[in-house]
Simulated scan of single mutants.
Amino acid sequence: MTRLLWIPRGIGLGLLAFLIFGPLLNLLLWAFAEKWFYPNAFPSDWGFSYWGRVFSPRGAAWEALGNSLTVALLTVALSLMLSIPAGYALARLPLPAKALILLSFLIPQAFPNLTVYVNIARIFYQFGLNGTIAGVVIVHTVHGLVLSVWIATAAFSAVPRDGEEAARSMGAGPFRAFRDVTLPQALPGLLAAAIFVFLESLDEFTGSYFVGAPDVQMLPLTLFTAAGGGNYQIASITALLLLVPSIGFMLLVERFLKADVLARVGK
């Protein structure tokens, strides 16, 4: 009887694999399909003509890719500039209401994105930030701080105080002790935070749409436009451009983000 238990387990694993890899397989099929009509199970013609259209000068894929990477990198830089001192202070200093401060970074996530970005767009219009890279970076950073501050706090909390205290006792100043002792040990967690922020920025659509469109073209906007117009091949190719770095960076996150850091998230 116990030998038959592999049957429901196999069925369950097969369904799980289908749910995970089925959409990815469909994405790959559409990316290389020239003609695919119902009720055919597979495309009738294959080719790369849509790839040429996506990367042609009129396709604007290079512009969207360049803008997306630029915004993501600037968002990472700004998020880390803010989250490193904030995370260190929350992990090391006897601040009152630390839990409340950490929860305050979740406020942008507590409300529907649509209503938040409509009001942000109205405010940005007054300061000339709508339709600019700077405006999109600021919006993405608001979301990125949720991840970067929490992970930075956990990363600094996981670093023992002994090394920093020993450096201070030997004459090192507070900044030098932080730079030479604490920061290198917290670096894996900070790198993981940077990767998470980069991926969050790369995939962000709502903020990019309300603040950046139509002047700042981004890959999620290109994907939305193509899918809304029924151009499934172009939409699939654009989705692959977003998917490849996401998979690569998630593998890096798995390497850098250790269990002791995860255990301290929210503490």
Rank of each mutant, 00 (worst) to 15 (best):
L191Y: 03
L183Y: 07
G171S: 09
L191S: 11
A172Q: 08
E165D: 14
A167T: 11
D180T: 13
F175Q: 04
P184H: 05
A172D: 12
M170F: 15
L191N: 10
F178M: 07
S169W: 09
A186W: 00
E200A: 13
G189Q: 03
M170A: 14
L187S: 15
A167N: 11
V197P: 03
L202S: 07
E200K: 06
R179I: 15
S169H: 06
R168Y: 00
L183Q: 08
T182R: 05
A193Y: 08
A194G: 15
A192E: 08
L199A: 09
V181M: 07
T182F: 06
L199Y: 05
G171V: 13
L187R: 12
L187K: 10
L187M: 14
L187I: 11
R168F: 00
P184M: 09
G173H: 09
A167Q: 04
E165R: 03
A192W: 04
G173C: 01
F198Q: 03
P174W: 13
A177D: 03
A167L: 04
R176P: 05
A186L: 00
V181T: 14
L183V: 10
L199D: 04
L190V: 14
D180W: 03
A172P: 03
A167P: 06
E165T: 12
E165H: 05
A172Y: 13
M170W: 13
S201R: 04
L202P: 11
L187C: 13
A167D: 08
G171A: 10
